[in-house]
């Protein structure tokens, strides 16, 4: 359920002291999209607090989100590594066959001159960045879940993980497979390898991960 946040409407007569960097400012939250300021109030269970002005989700805590996120991150690492090495798709035509792994797909560009840079980029987008993000999440949330003080540079690690979010494209790659399959369906017979199903599971996990991630809660937990 979406709950609009209550605007921060402190009377104009008492402007915040310029050096009030203490607990007062820590209780506020600013919408990163439209700059509106609110008093940060934890929404009830199952509720998500949205910016009253632009509807951006600001706080969306989940019970035991930390454990869930770590579990999903471990699964992502295992799946991506396994799926990278195992055959992904196989085709057969006129008695000849060929199987391809995700790594082969990334390296398809490697052989052809200037397009070779693209091999690196594709490998990064579909393998390295998703794995790196998962590892960063484990590193950041691990100590939090265990009630230990945050790991060194945890804030920088979490910021990097969030900055990389749009560049993690494993799920787009899976849909790309579907399109590629249709394109060659009448040219050859296509078989799904085990890695294909691993990657398909990965798509679901990525969606789950984004649903559980409440950035506000993570930052809050890193503060101590």
């Amino acid at each position: 359920m979406l709950v609009p946040m209550t605007p921060f409407d402190e009377p104009q007569t008492t402007p915040p002291a310029p050096n009030a960097a203490g607990p007062d400012l820590a209780a506020l939250i600013a919408c990163p999209r439209c700059d509106a300021v609110y008093r940060a109030v934890q929404p009830g269970p199952g509720e998500r607090a949205v910016c009253a002005s632009c509807k951006t989700v600001l706080i969306a805590p989940r019970r035991r989100a930390g454990q869930h996120l770590i579990a999903v991150a471990v699964a992502v690492v295992v799946l991506v590594v396994a799926a990278t090495l195992a055959p992904f798709l196989a085709i057969e035509a006129a008695g000849r066959s060929n199987a391809s792994s995700v790594l082969d797909a990334a390296l398809a560009f490697a052989a052809t001159g200037p397009v070779a840079i693209l091999a690196l980029a594709v490998a990064a987008l579909i393998v390295f960045i998703p794995v790196l993000r998962a590892l960063l999440v484990i590193y950041v949330l691990g100590p939090v879940v265990l009630d230990r003080p945050p790991a060194p540079h945890a804030a920088a690690a979490f910021r990097l993980s969030e900055d990389l979010r749009p560049w993690s494209m494993a799920e787009i790659f899976v849909i790309g497979c579907a399109v590629a399959l249709v394109k060659i369906a009448d040219l050859a017979q296509v078989h799904f390898g085990p890695a294909f199903w691993m990657f398909a599971a990965l798509v679901v996990l990525v969606v789950v991960q984004d649903g559980f991630m409440c950035r506000y809660s993570v930052w809050k937990s890193l503060e101590r």
Partner: peptide
Amino acid sequence: VFVVAILASLV
């Protein structure tokens, strides 16, 4: 781009 990569490695 991914479709091209998949086709080029598979076919």
